[in-house]
Design a protein around this nucleic acid. Sequence first.
RNA 1: UCCAGCUUAGCUCAGUCGGUAGAGCAGGUGACUGUUAAUCACCGGGUCGCUGGUUCGAGUCCAGCAGCUGGAGCCA
Length: 472
Amino acid sequence: MRNISVKGALAGQVEVGSKVEVRGWVRTRRDSKAGISFIHVTDGSCQDPIQVVAPNTLGNYASEVQRLSTGCSLICRGTLVQSQGKGQAFEIQADEVIAVGFVDDPETYPVQPKQHTAEFLREVAHLRPRTNTFGAITRVRHAAAMAIHRFFTDEGFVWVNTPIITAADAEGAGQMFRVSTLDLANPPRNEQKGVDFHKDFFGKEAYLTVSGQLNVEAYCLALSKVYTFGPTFRAENSNTTRHLAEFWMIEPEIAFADLSADADLAERFLKAIFRAVLAERMDDLKFLEQTVGKGVVTQAGLIDRLEKFVDSSFERIEYSEAIEILKRSKKKFEYQPEWGKDLQTEHERFLTEDHVGRPVVVMNYPEQIKAFYMRMNDDGKTVAAMDVLAPGIGEIIGGSQREERLDHLDARMRAMSLVPEHYGWYRDLRRYGSVPHAGFGLGFERLIVYICGLGNIRDAIPYPRVPGWAQF
RNA sequence: UCCAGCUUAGCUCAGUCGGUAGAGCAGGUGACUGUUAAUCACCGGGUCGCUGGUUCGAGUCCAGCAGCUGGAGCCA
């Protein structure tokens, strides 16, 4: 008797005629008056279930087997045989079916063998992994995460775990979640009647990180090629299909590199991830593609899109050029494109979907709309920033070459009303062996949305956290 | 945060001109069948989001509130 995964059995890795045991959950059960029941069992190891054929000669046939409904857990022991029916190559002829856990009230068990809406499934986030769709998304997410680590490892990068709790103002922007152990109702006060954070756990104000970039730059200027991959938090009141309050971000940083090298890295990176997912999870991608509609998947033709992506080179255009293209286009925009203003979502979508039809890297943005750490270009008006835009989603990656010259960095900070003295250790990096370096940030869930063709980022992460929602 | 829409059975939805609610799926029972989200018949299942208003009468019209969704902004 050998315990096997459904994946192993269906892939033909188990010898026909051998005694096996599978453990999992009932997807559907059908009874036949020929004296057998067909039970589709899934254990999450792959998209397809295995069919267990349970004869009515089993001792618990009437008492338990016929009570099995969608969602019940069970252990099946029997012989792996070639299927007599159509639709599957192998099945298990059961000698024993052990009902491990029944479903309390089958009528109200939320996961029915039908297509549910994404909204309903979010309300049962603890049960939605049992659906085909969320099983597929979860496996794709894993494959993508592993592909990311593998890509960086193969390219000689080192994974750096930057802190989740930080006292820095980070990028000055991004609303942050406060971390405190003070009594909210009765906090200690200082002489100005303000809250005395010297008495707080860290002796100062602390927050959840909005980016690991500043910290990882320090490791970049020692280990040359580094990246972060970890949880990130934004307390912005964003209610969209593209924002989460808690998400996972990937931030590579490369030394002795300029913006062009950064864009090269972004292109190799995205293609490598997509290639890996196409190679490893085609079964799940195919399933997701079939479910396009009112459910979780809303974007059609996702496999084709990924295959085109890995085969096409990225178009590169200057920000100034992008503005000219938008102005020349006959398309009516809600917001008029104008040099010095950031590109709107509608502009980004036009560039990548209508104008080019492929991924686009927009480079060198006006300095006033970008962060303080981005490198000032020789024209004195733009900084070495880039955004990677992809059809169907818009901005997927944002990156830049960092300002490695201390005097320029200080000038940029002051121009943005930041106090250089507050960034002592960050400025040190420019004082001690500074080198040109660059990097980018990628929201992991946005990548999953793109790969899986999802309509909402809340379905790309197991337990989404958004304004007004932190259930489960 | 702003704008718009939605809220009816366990789920997905219909509900006409204001007259006390229907379907499919799911569930139960039975029939049938090496079945494939099986098929067929029958049965059970409702605080129409909440509060108030108009009206003889409100799922339906009006107002407020709540929740959710979509778009925008912010961004990854």
